[in-house]
Design a protein around this nucleic acid. Structure first.
Lengths: 225, 225
DNA sequence: AGTTGTCCGAATGTCAACATTCGGACAACA
DNA sequence: TGTTGTCCGAATGTTGACATTCGGACAACT
């Protein structure tokens, strides 16, 4: 058993099932558009359909999968329109998170951001584990939202977080060099602005950071408008 | 039976249960803090616990109720901190919705907004049905989000919509005159800006509209900071 | 009196069987 | 050949019973 509390996992089987399926989607086991059948998953995970069902509902709330009345659940596709929607909303959320965090962030939050930037730098220096780099990117923005301390804002962020993660994985697949060349500098600047920057500059840079990611991803997509 | 499609309600019992419970909360039958017991609701609504459970999960996604592991579900409270969180997020969402709708809105959307303003005016002229006025207010902002046409943004809006509705009902309880005096003019101006206004002015007014509501509500609350 | 340990009722978490619905395959028809 | 109607398999929606967990009441101990 792991070193952490063995029975600390006090959440239900539904949450666990959701985590497992989410990981399987990120790993590519379930590509975009793939159907997620309840009986199949229940059998494979060793839990009942009810728990799988509740887990899938959670993933639907995260926007990672889509479902309809008696029409099953499938992994979302990555279309230009989806990307536009998600990144437009993300820009608004990140802007609010950054400006809120500028006032509310504690020293611990700020040093955690620095630590993540350092990890990114190290990651780039040695190998080129793209998924790990993307995970650090996501963790960086998680930390900003944590620093902002607005529960509703965090919920809204979590509602697009998984989609964003999926999109970013596609992005580094298509244009890893471009991503690799900018990721550290952009996040280092954001960290600096969060520590002692002008609030209007911060708001603008947070939006630009998202815009940069959006254009980079759209460039590698068909029918990019 | 209604004039619309009688069996068009093709959604599951879970959705129906959610609607019923939501209405009961708005009507005051379940005041803030009240426990929502699954067996009790299942009996009263004539559906199984599973459906009630799924319906409550939906209300939890809307932020109207809160639940924990083996700890039941209760209606949210209305504290100053909750109000600050919800209105801060709403300002960011409404700003994005308004600026997006400024470009994407169709003539139908715009005339629907005018119609709602007219209904508000009529409502004030005759009686003083506060809940109905609040419902029109909510419908107005629903329409803006519909005009924006960003599915993810709409989801984020729906995640705070019910809380907002509950807060607004409390607001008119505490300061109906103040609300009544401003609601029509503010919405009329927003409608005009959406039709042919400068986009920066629109963004600013949308944020100010939310701020006005927030301060009005906080004034009638204890421990208002 | 204050504290600790045990027990019990109530409520939620989980499960497997049953009912309902969807979408395509197939055949009859124009 | 294109269209319409019917049927059927597969998958989801729903249900009630069973298992687990929580929180307080009560009693024994210090």
């Amino acid at each position: 058993m792991s070193s952490a509390l063995p029975k600390a996992a006090r959440r239900g089987l539904a949450d666990e099932a959701a985590d497992l399926v989410r990981a399987a989607i990120f790993s590519g086991h379930f590509p975009p558009g793939a159907p997620l059948r309840e009986v199949e998953l229940a059998e494979h995970l060793g839990v009942s359909r009810g728990s799988v069902r509740e887990g899938l509902a959670r993933l639907e709330r995260e926007g990672l999968v889509r479902g309809g009345w008696h029409r099953g659940t499938t992994v979302i596709e990555v279309t230009a329109e989806d990307v536009q929607e998600v990144y437009a909303l993300r820009a608004a959320l990140d802007r609010l998170a950054a400006t809120t965090a500028r006032r509310a962030a504690t020293a611990e939050h700020l040093s955690a951001l620095d630590r993540l930037v350092a990890e990114m730098t190290a990651e780039i220096a040695e190998g080129s584990d793209a998924p790990r780099l993307v995970a650090l990117d996501m963790a960086f923005h998680d930390q900003i939202h944590a620093a902002a301390g607005n529960g509703r804002l965090t919920s809204a962020w979590e509602a697009i977080r998984s989609q964003l993660h999926l999109f970013q994985l596609h992005r580094v697949d298509a244009a890893y060099d471009h991503y690799r060349a900018r990721v550290v500098d952009e996040h280092r600047e954001l960290a600096a602005l969060l520590r002692s920057g002008d609030i209007r500059t911060l708001a603008r840079r947070a939006e630009e950071h998202v815009d940069s990611a959006r254009r980079s991803l759209l460039a590698g997509l068909p029918t990019a408008q």
